[in-house]
């Protein structure tokens, strides 16, 4: 990507080209995170692609400020928060659940033998089905934790919650899922 055009300096002292280079790095590092999150939120590749593109466009517009205000902290939670808000708008605009609910999302392929794949896939299907029964915030927290490998602190920042509230949210989400699986 070559978005560096100007050498004008920005309020944080970085040149425009430097800022573009930093954005390019952020984009390359987190494209898969944003796409994975978008996919698990909207349930299909087409809308996940659109949502990912929109998320990066918004991020690009506000990158300078985000960088300035982050005080050196990682920007992944900010990026996921943008995707999170866009996904919420997506569902609000359509005024219904994802086109394909999580239980209809095909589990990723497994590097195991045929028998194990069949057994494993059934279990995975069940997890997806039960996951879809959780409240939005619990499901989103689990997506962030397991699909993106985000820490409690990162999830807290992405969801705009405190670290403590996020820990409780994740704990309750897993507990509810366990109960659902035992039914």
């Amino acid at each position: 990507m070559s978005v560096a055009k100007e050498e004008d300096s920005t309020p944080d002292g970085a040149s425009k080209a430097e800022l573009d280079r930093a954005f390019e790095e952020l984009y390359r590092t987190h494209l898969r995170d944003v796409y994975s999150y978008a996919y698990y939120r909207v349930g299909n590749h087409h809308d996940a692609e659109d949502l990912t593109e929109q998320a990066f466009l918004q991020a690009y517009r506000h990158f300078e400020r985000a960088r300035r205000e982050s005080n050196g902290r990682p920007l992944r939670p900010w990026l996921i928060r943008i995707a999170h808000n866009l996904a919420s708008n997506y569902h609000r605009d359509r005024a219904r659940r994802p086109e394909a609910a999580l239980d209809a999302v095909e589990p990723p392929s497994h590097p195991l033998g045929t028998e194990q794949i069949v057994e494993g896939r059934e279990e995975l299907r069940l997890v997806m089905e039960k996951l879809d029964r959780l409240s939005d915030d619990r499901r989103e927290a689990l997506i962030m934790r397991f699909a993106l490998g985000m820490s409690n602190r990162e999830i807290a920042r992405a969801l705009g919650r405190t670290d403590g509230a996020t820990k409780v949210l994740l704990h309750r989400a897993i507990k509810q899922l366990e109960e659902e699986m035992e039914r």
Binding site: M1, S2, V3, A4, K5, D20, F23, Y27, L31, R32, D33, Y35, S36, Y39, Y40, H45, A48, E49, T52, E53, F56, L57, Y60, P107, P108, H110, G120, E123, L124, V127, M128, L131, L142, I143, R145, F146, A147, L148, I174, L177
Partner: peptide
């Protein structure tokens, strides 16, 4: 199980090109 069910999804190859080209156009 959750780790297996919620694996990261690789974005399609053309998505990267698409986003990069949109960003480059905006910057230009």
């Amino acid at each position: 199980l959750l780790g297996d069910a919620l694996r990261p999804i690789e974005p399609p190859d053309d998505l990267a090109t698409r986003v990069e080209s949109t960003l480059a156009t905006i910057a230009e």
